[in-house]
Design a protein around this nucleic acid. Structure first.
Lengths: 234, 234
DNA sequence: AAAATTATTATGTAGTACATAATAATTTAA
DNA sequence: TTAAATTATTATGTACTACATAATAATTTT
């Protein structure tokens, strides 16, 4: 009798701790009662009584939810359901040093895709003022400086692009992905922040006078060194 | 003397709990010692002694890090540094019901941008087999069925697209964003999962015989109802 | 009735005790 | 002399008690 057959008959022993279970119960509870942000939640001791576990366990579960920003606690006032910051939790674990290389590569591609998909939002929301500011950034760039200056202007330019979309979440997301981008590009020194034939200034001009399609082609050319470095098969 | 001037001279009283501080200290500690995934970490009691706080506090901080997947604990073996699942934490808080509407709208746009940026990865990695499978999905769709069937085929088709990119993180990200997409679209009933002039089958054919530029144009037309619904100013 | 004081309440921190599971050390048996 | 069984050790998990602290509610005083 092999393992596969065995596991049909023998139910897997749960290795979850009580805190794990309580955390899950609380999540279900909040959903079931359809609490809304700002609503007061039961007191610790009430939860202790209802769940039949020690205060320690309840507190451990609560502290996790609090860390995700799902609840906030005030002394005396008790706990309230909060609006979690979706990107905040992401941010906390996004450290290139501890993330798996495959995931980093995936995130690198994700950012490229995002960059390419930006065009439609850009052409919907761009204003003359935006373009003027972007142009200033592009003009201020030094092309003969040190690596770190080029990196800086790269960040400034693309960051501004995201800003023009008026989508703050997108912008924050891009900022978060920046270290990943930097990390992956510097892994292969020869392609670090290299630009294609289309420069930032070219992109500004397309944004000013060209069409959306022109811009997409231009952006692809600008990012071409990165696209060329992508593996065809994964 | 107004508040702004006051806060220059009076340092803000920290409202952080000891657990907050310990959490931060531990993060710094891991980084400073440049622990790698799999490395053993100090025992609870050692941390208690070093930090000069109660075991409760240390455990609370540890439980948060464990929840983020940054550490794993085994009885007796102690704790080891783990590879956090970057998307996992995201997933835990991404509930359309508790996320702010503005953020939802932002995420909706993010997904649109991603969808548009997919083309380059698709044309890099698509195979005949992929296209055949995608075609099958498109052919199986029923256009006169109930809403929920149309939603289902919508998910199947776009999900497959992400799959073809060979980027699993991207795929997972898309799956996570799905509820958001569904939520936002159904907020305005009239545009719920409506397609533009270009159908899924059209997209398949472009992927088969057309150029990358054709595909981008096609995808934009396909998503046009959504793009049209976006506010010009934010 | 307003201000000051006191009581109450709920979370935050500390500490002790024991349970449990995984490993290490030791003893026993073949 | 190994291999197996037993026992000890170790580190995390759970429970419970006690008190600190801060915010609010209730009460008293002026």
């Amino acid at each position: 009798m092999d393992v596969e057959n065995l596991s049909k008959d023998l139910e897997r022993v749960s290795t979850e701790t009580m805190a794990d279970i309580v955390e899950l119960r609380l999540r279900e509870f909040f959903k079931k009662k359809s609490f809304k942000p700002g609503d007061a939640l039961p007191k610790e001791m009430e939860l202790v009584a209802a769940l039949g576990v020690s205060r320690n366990v309840v507190r451990e579960a609560l502290s996790r939810l609090r860390m995700l920003g799902m609840i906030e606690t005030r002394k005396k006032r008790g706990m309230i359901l909060a609006r979690p910051d979706v990107l905040g939790t992401f941010e906390r674990v996004l450290d290139p040093l501890i993330i798996d290389d495959h995931i980093l590569q995936d995130l690198f591609e994700l950012r490229l895709a995002l960059e390419m998909g930006l065009a439609d939002l850009l052409f919907l929301r761009k204003t003359d003022k935006d373009i003027a500011e972007l142009e200033k950034i592009a003009l201020d760039e030094k092309h003969d400086g040190e690596q770190r200056f080029r990196v800086k202007s790269e960040i400034a330019f693309h960051g501004k692009l995201y800003e023009i979309t008026g989508n703050n979440t997108l912008k924050r997301f891009q900022v978060m992905l920046m270290p990943v981008f930097g990390y992956v590009t510097t892994l292969e020194k020869d392609r670090s922040y290299r630009s294609g034939k289309v420069t930032h200034l070219d992109l500004v001009n397309i944004l000013k006078n060209g069409t959306k399609e022109d811009f997409k082609t231009g952006m692809y050319e600008h990012l071409k060194p990165h696209f060329d470095s992508l593996p065809k098969k994964k």
